[in-house]
Amino acid sequence: MTLPAHHPQSWQNTYPTPPPVFPVGRTLGWLAAYAGALVGANALTASYGMIPVGFGQTATAGTVLAGVALMVRNTLQDLLGRRGVMTAVLIGSLLSALVAPPALAFASAASVLVAESADMSLYTPLRRRGWVRAVVPATLLGAFLDTLVFLTIAGFPVWAAVPGQMTGKAWAVAVPVLLVLLCRSVGPRAGRVRRLARNWVSRS
């Protein structure tokens, strides 16, 4: 028997499960993090200039946050799709130009646009192989191009600065990836501990 269209259970004839709900709050949070990373990268560089990033290298103070922006972009692509994240990248490029010092506005906008687009072009085909296998090479490619484009257009020495810039951005890749791997390793073990505890409580 077919239920009338207005029947409260008629949706079950068309949708075996309820349609998915778009995570608005989580998406807005990641968009805010993306914008904050871009703004913060420019603000830190303007305020503090060069800072040590380890291994005897120095980089602009906003380098780590520029790497964070690349990592966040990958998460936004999972939430928004390619068209949505490309819109976010274009807005991010404009925002980066607006908050950068006037002399660096074009370099900042161009580096964001080129780096984030390259990140997306590599992340997209690799994503089906898993998040870690996609995010590491894609973010490192974007980080290298971000450094190359920004330094070239801004008129800074390029190759002398690349090691420090890449070291700073590598921290932004390594820390979240290691945390994700740690959580994946600990998560199943924690679940087993909770199940054992529940079984022990139910038998006692």
Rank of each mutant, 00 (worst) to 15 (best):
A110V: 05
Y15Q: 09
A160T: 10
S185M: 11
A172S: 11
P16Y: 02
G168V: 00
R195Y: 11
V21S: 07
V201W: 13
L90F: 12
Q165F: 01
A41R: 07
I51H: 14
T60F: 00
G92M: 05
A138G: 15
R127D: 01
S96I: 08
L76I: 10
W11E: 09
L140H: 10
S10T: 11
L76M: 15
L95E: 03
S108I: 03
V149F: 00
V112M: 01
L126N: 13
T45I: 07
L94Q: 07
F106I: 13
T27A: 12
V180Y: 12
S47V: 14
V193I: 10
M166P: 04
G40W: 04
P125H: 11
R184C: 05
Y48M: 11
V149G: 00
P8R: 13
D119R: 04
T147S: 01
V89S: 01
V173C: 13
R198S: 10
V186H: 10
A88Y: 01
P163A: 12
W171K: 00
T45E: 02
R203V: 09
A46L: 05
V175S: 09
M120T: 07
M166T: 08
A110R: 06
S10E: 13
A190E: 13
T75P: 14
V186Q: 09
V114T: 01
A134E: 03
L140T: 09
M1E: 15
G92C: 03
V177S: 07
F22H: 13
G40A: 07
V114G: 00
R189Q: 15
G67D: 04
V24E: 14
A66Q: 03
A105V: 03
P188C: 11
Y48S: 09
A105I: 04
V53P: 02
L151W: 02
T124F: 06
S93M: 01
L90D: 06
A43P: 14
G62A: 14
P8G: 12
V177N: 07
N42D: 07
T60E: 05
Q9H: 15
L31K: 15
V89T: 05
Q165S: 08
A61T: 00
I51R: 06
P16I: 04
V180M: 15
A143N: 07
V24T: 13
L196V: 08
K169T: 03
K169H: 08
T167G: 09
A115Q: 04
A35Q: 02
A134S: 03
V177I: 11
V149C: 02
V53W: 03
R73D: 08
A46D: 06
Y15N: 14
A46T: 07
D119P: 01
V21M: 04
A170G: 03
L113A: 02
P20A: 11
R133G: 14
F55N: 09
A143T: 03
G36Q: 00
L79E: 09
I91D: 03
R184K: 08
L141V: 14
V186K: 15
T45S: 05
D146P: 10
I91G: 08
W11S: 10
W11V: 09
A69M: 04
A103Y: 15
R195F: 08
V114R: 05
L151R: 00
M86P: 05
